[in-house]
Design a protein around this nucleic acid. Structure first.
Lengths: 246, 246
DNA sequence: CGGGGGTTTGACGAACGTCAATCGGGGTGG
DNA sequence: CCACCCCGATTGACGTTCGTCAAACCCCCG
């Protein structure tokens, strides 16, 4: 585990949001430097509110580590998770950041974030074209994820939903170097998964067991494995981002 | 139908997209003129493809009249309608318009559209601040609608979904002068409504009957009425845009 | 006076939810 | 180091919502 301490320039593991943005647009040295230099590091504990629907937007942040949920709770307690915010994702960055936040964001695990204001400023002033391009690309992907979520909830079975969801998470984590395309961290409870996929905890549990019995996945102690990616993609009709749907 | 030909300046009914944008930002005379002057008028027939997922984006357009669906169809025929495009809405305007379209748009009724390119150019060059502000506001609203759709599909019952949906449509049509907040055109089949709300046609039918029996709505020959707005909003936990959720 | 698309109805079945109890494992305090 | 605890996972029994199939109905139109 101990990392080399040699005086290497770029071999040090990049922050996840740098990897994410760099994978979407060719970034110049000054652009990479701006990102790598982001500060205002903060830690958050599970349950911390990172933004509240209707409240004035807070300072935009990038996630260094940890998972958050973007969600809404109905008056009788039913909860819907719109999306997850993973390492490398922004909080209040891409969604139109005009004042009132569209949803509530809650830290689901311990998290570390940094201040993304310098990044947004650079995008606003169009000073750095690579960052602007990356910004646009990420915003598109976020929209795509919302549409995928609608498809899952509206027209897929529980089995398909779980498969589709796991494939999406795997892709997103791979983009920031947290998945080797086989195994990746999945620090979720079945309850949150249920609230994201529009199911009950019990049904999520049974669906997961079915997927395990079918030899498609494994999931123990926060680590998930996709044992048959092709079959999963087939089942879920999942198309990896970038490839045309048909 | 024949329009007055008197030399009136602003009394002629505004195009719906002018109303929509003007309701979201104070627009200057030049800005209003740019919008009113948009040309490239085109007619579309039901079933026409206005954009295809994965295809390079077409020329952005504003809808003058008619309804379209933004949708995706699974390989076995299941269809999910992500959202509807109504008069005043844009096609390929607000969603990040970078090349590949995120979804397929199909004309559901006869439609008339105009070319929105001059509008987008003005926004891109930031030449007209009112238009930029309106653009941002509409983009936000479109995101909000996707989130509402997720909430409906994930955590609401059929009854609540239909109520919520009708309230949203009413609000949107009212913004372009097509609803008097009681009665509005609803040129949909129950089948499309089913595909939008993640239900079967049969169940939509039964849900509508329940809503009728409860004295909440009417819907005959393409005209819908909300008979008890307050109760509907209560049932659906619908919050009119602009008001804080809690 | 036929058609044809959309709506409505009934009977039945499957997917998923609820309730409640049990299990399991990892963290913690003694 | 061990017993206890607690949260989350799991299981079973049962209920409900919603889907499917298929037929009838209705209306508008040619």
């Amino acid at each position: 585990m101990a990392e080399r301490t040699l005086p290497q320039k770029t071999a040090a593991p990049r922050q996840p949001f740098v990897l994410r943005l760099a994978s979407l647009a060719r970034l110049s040295e000054p652009e990479l430097d701006l990102l790598s230099g982001l500060g205002g590091r903060e830690a958050h504990r599970p349950g911390d509110e990172l933004s509240v629907a209707g409240d004035p937007a807070r300072r935009p942040r990038f996630i260094v580590s940890g998972w958050a949920t973007n969600q809404h709770i109905l008056s009788d307690g039913r909860r819907q998770v719109f999306s997850f915010a993973l390492p490398g994702d922004g909080l209040g960055v891409y969604p139109r950041m005009t004042p009132p936040a569209l949803y509530t964001s809650i830290a689901h695990t311990p998290m570390v974030t940094v201040d993304a204001t310098p990044f947004l400023d650079a995008v606003r002033t169009a000073a750095m074209p690579g960052l602007v391009k990356a910004f646009t690309a990420v915003a598109r992907l976020e929209d795509k994820m919302l549409l995928d979520q609608i498809l899952r909830l509206g027209r897929q079975t529980a089995y398909e939903r779980v498969a589709h969801f796991l494939l999406e998470i795997d892709d997103r984590l791979a983009a920031v170097g947290l998945s080797d395309r086989r195994r990746f961290p999945l620090p979720l409870t079945q309850e949150i998964l249920a609230d994201a996929l529009g199911l009950s905890v019990v049904h999520v549990n049974r669906t997961l067991q079915q997927l395990r019995r079918d030899g498609l996945i494994e999931w123990r102690s926060g680590q998930a494995s996709l044992l048959d990616r092709d079959l999963l993609m087939n089942v879920a009709e999942y198309h990896t981002p970038g490839r045309k749907p048909l």
